[in-house]
Design a binder for these strands. Structure first.
Length: 805
DNA sequence: TCACAGTGACTTTTT
DNA sequence: GTCACTGTGA
């Protein structure tokens, strides 16, 4: 053990628990790391420590995460501490699975040049098997299959029936597997399941692998699924040092097969496990952790942690109970305005919601109010039709057996190869054991007229593309992915053992040439240009974007393989430069915020029926509560919560009540959001204490007009949304109309130099400068009597009031 | 093969 | 309210 006072600097930064976790060795280790407790620092430091101080070779370390972003960060930070850590295998679970599978594919008689099918491809495969099924039904089966694979279940697993109660499922799953093997490709689930299978049945590979990886580190362990657990178990040997890091309170992916029991039972599955808790939170004020801790304490199945803030105090979170979504947007706009006025960057602010549909209200209104926003998630670049089309051409070049890619593009753009022709070609392929492409070459007699010409054109295109790629396109020679070094800026790990150099004399020619050729000669350009003109889409631009991305890879089949693998496994790429969006508010689903943090967080839509849904009970409810917990702990400085009494859901306006997560909360932990004192005179009156415990604290700001609607509201522990919101609506509506019509108190004509003002926080002052901005109305710079100078967009703040001298 | 209209469905989604 | 799927008709 290293003496405390002689710690190298990179260890000296750690707190005692973190240090203990880094120095720990021997038994399996479970690090329970709460939100914001420096989890990544511990893992990366541990990797560096093992290499630097313990003489572990970096190659023998395997660290797995769930997201590419996390993997990238871990890789970079470990390498910063110890450059040789670059040789450690730090990857996502799936990327590791793919890496392993390509190296050991022969153990399952699989080609190592497989392409990875995404969910949509899987659904298409089901569709190919069961042509009579509707598309939604195919998707359902595909997702059930994915779930079965998450649980490590095979078509013949006895327990399959307990997971999925559909009599046909076993048959569909079995057919799917057969058909998938025929394409030579794999799906996401296979990237976990198949490596586990190889390790189980091939002793030689298993021994070699266990000898290689002496250290296993797993991040976000609470979100691992059963299949991932099985893989881990098969990588584990008595000589392996196993360390998992996670937070049971942040397990939010149950619906995709994440098994919280993995972390809850870790210690009992791996005997001798030592558990270290990291509870010192460096991110949030104590006031935020208090409310988050209160929320999650209501869950039963927990290991139990209490976060302590290193930043004591902090403003109490504010809860805004509003009338409807329009008010919610106004509310957010006001918070944004206030933050802006305080000099915060818009990128410091995030608005969180449960479902993607909820972003719409913000998206519609923010541009009108001059608020730039950045929408996270939503429609992913690689899920777009035109991108998938182009990728399908590429997949087909790499693997001519790819039936799904073939179906997708053989007649796209239309070449006169209708459903009948395609099916007869695929029939022939199946009967004679040919790839679809080979079947095409041999089936020209089946076609005539337009179809015949179309087929010639199609095959001609593939031939030219193949020629461009150079050699050995259809040969079975195994290649090794990225062994020969990196060309990609995406930073895939290269195998430390090294491998043969990438062959071919591609010179500096890039893959972009191939993509351009395909796009032009296939007619995709014309096809999508038409669509662009009709629907105002960005399809051409998106294809350009993809071509652009491909230019980093060499024009060779290996380059193509690497390009596809990178894309298949890291789909986070967003088209369009984000430089212009640097200063923008983040709109994001609660799920997508995991691992992120923002100085200011607004959690919106906290209504019963929406979050949680009314049908969520038991384990589901606990998961939603964890999701709420995750959302709250994203906030560093300021936290706002909002709920609407009336919410438009699917075109219907529905009366709601506040989320049970709010009503069950300790009311002393938050404040009701109130307008600046300058905005409206608080009126007399208060809520009946019996029904509203928080009244005492907020009576001053609570309004007069308690509207006792529909009786049921009277007995709620929280006031109805309307009772509070009705006080606010005037002010909010006011701010809204001023924003839209430029006539309200915030409008520009009335702001002049020398105007005396009063500010809610800074007191009296005088305007020293007024300037106009295009999007946000006038910008007013004020010198206060305190000497402070601050700038405001009157449009966004009501804290600034004009007064007479 | 395509364009259109009518119907129904609708959480979350690291890979 | 929106979108995507489905079936119809040209």
């Amino acid at each position: 053990m290293i003496e405390q006072e002689r710690l190298p600097p990179y260890l000296a930064y750690l707190n005692p628990e973190q240090l203990k976790a880094v120095l720990h060795e021997g038994s399996p280790l479970l690090i329970l790391a709460g939100a914001g407790t420096g989890k990544t620092r511990v893992i990366t430091t541990k990797i560096a420590y093992l290499v630097k101080e313990r003489g572990i070779s970096p190659e023998s370390i395997l660290a797995v995460t769930f997201t590419n972003k996390a993997a990238r960060e871990m890789r970079e930070r470990a390498a910063l501490l110890e450059p040789s850590c670059e040789r450690a295998v730090i990857r996502t679970f799936h990327s590791f699975g793919s890496w392993f599978l390509r190296r050991n594919a022969q153990a399952l008689e699989l080609d190592s040049n497989f392409v990875i099918y995404d969910d949509e491809d899987s659904a298409s495969l089901v569709q190919a098997i069961l042509p009579n099924l509707g598309k939604p039904e195919c998707r359902r089966y595909a997702s059930l299959i994915a779930r079965a694979k998450d649980y490590g279940l095979e078509p013949d697993s006895p327990s399959l029936a307990t997971l999925i109660r559909d009599d046909d499922f076993r048959r569909v799953y079995s057919l799917y597997e057969e058909r998938l093997r025929a394409t030579g490709n794999v799906d996401f689930g296979d990237l976990i399941r198949l490596p586990a299978k190889i390790l189980e049945k091939d002793e030689v590979i298993a021994r070699r692998t266990k000898q290689r990886f002496r250290v296993l580190l797993v991040d976000e362990y609470q979100d691992s699924n059963v299949a991932q657990f099985l893989l881990l178990q098969r990588l584990f040997s008595p000589e392996t040092y196993l360390c998992v890091v996670g937070d049971d309170d942040q397990s939010i992916y149950r619906f995709r097969g994440a098994e919280i029991r993995n972390i809850l039972s870790f210690a009992s599955i791996f005997p001798g496990t030592e558990t270290i808790k990291l509870e010192r939170n460096y991110r949030s004020y104590q006031s935020i952790l208090d409310i988050a801790g209160d929320v999650v304490s209501r869950n039963s199945g927990r290991l139990g942690k209490t976060l302590r803030a290193t930043r004591p105090g902090g403003a109490k979170p504010q809860l805004a109970l509003l009338d409807d979504q329009d008010q919610e947007v106004s509310f957010c706009a006001r918070i944004i305005g206030e933050m802006r006025a305080k000099g915060a960057s818009l990128s410091d602010i995030a608005i969180l919601y449960r479902t993607n549909a909820q972003s719409l209200a913000f998206e519609k209104e923010f541009p009108r109010r001059g608020i730039p926003y950045r929408l996270v998630g939503a429609l992913r670049f690689y899920d777009r039709e035109e991108v998938k089309d182009l990728l399908a051409y590429l997949s087909l070049l790499l693997n001519p057996r790819d039936e799904i890619a073939f179906r997708r593009i053989v007649n796209k753009p239309a070449r006169g190869l209708g459903e009948g022709s395609v099916e007869s070609i695929l029939d022939k392929a199946a009967r004679e054991g040919l790839s679809p492409i080979e079947a095409c070459r041999q089936s020209q007699e089946l076609l005539r007229g337009r179809g015949k010409a179309g087929m010639e054109q199609f095959l001609g295109l593939l031939d030219r593309a193949t020629a461009l790629l150079g050699t050995m396109m259809y040969q079975d020679e195994p290649y090794s992915l990225s062994d020969g070094g990196k060309r990609s800026t995406k930073g895939e790990n290269s195998d430390a053992k090294g491998g043969k150099a990438i062959g071919g004399d591609a010179g500096s020619a890039s893959l972009a040439i191939l993509l351009e050729t395909i796009v032009k000669e296939s007619g995709l350009v014309g096809y999508h240009r038409d669509q662009d003109e009709i629907a105002g889409t960005q399809k051409l631009a998106n294809m350009d974007e993809l071509i652009n991305a491909s230019s980093l890879y060499p024009l060779a089949s290996e380059g193509l393989a690497e390009f596809l693998e990178t894309i298949e496994l890291d789909r986070s790429f967003q088209a369009g430069s984000d430089a212009e969006l640097k200063d923008a508010v983040t709109l994001i689903t609660m799920h997508n915020t995991k691992g992120l943090e923002f100085p200011c967080v607004i959690v919106s839509g906290l209504e019963q029926g929406l979050f949680p849904r009314d049908d969520e009970e038991g384990e589901d409810l606990e998961e939603q509560r964890r999701l709420f917990y995750v959302s709250l702990t994203r906030a560093k400085d300021r936290l706002y919560l909002s709920a609407c009494r009336w919410r438009r859901i699917r075109g219907r306006i529905i009366e709601t009540s506040p989320s049970r997560f709010l009503t069950e909360m300790d009311p002393s932990l938050y404040e009701f959001w109130k307008l600046g004192a300058s905005a409206s005179r608080p009126q007399a009156g208060s809520f009946p204490r019996r029904t509203f415990p928080a009244t005492q604290r907020t009576a001053g700001s609570a309004g007069a007009s308690l509207i006792p609607k529909a009786g049921s509201y009277g007995s709620r522990p929280l006031p109805s949304a309307s009772s509070l919101a009705s006080n606010r609506s005037a002010a909010l509506t006011g701010s809204k109309s001023s924003a839209q019509a430029e006539t309200g108190p915030g409008a520009s004509p009335e702001w002049k130099r020398g105007q005396a003002v009063y500010h809610d926080e800074y007191g009296r002052g005088s305007v020293i400068k007024v300037s106009m901005t295009e999007s946000s109305g006038s910008l007013v710079i004020v010198q206060f009597e305190t000497g402070k100078i601050a700038q405001f967009f009157p449009k966004y703040t009501r804290k600034l009031e004009r007064i007479k001298d």
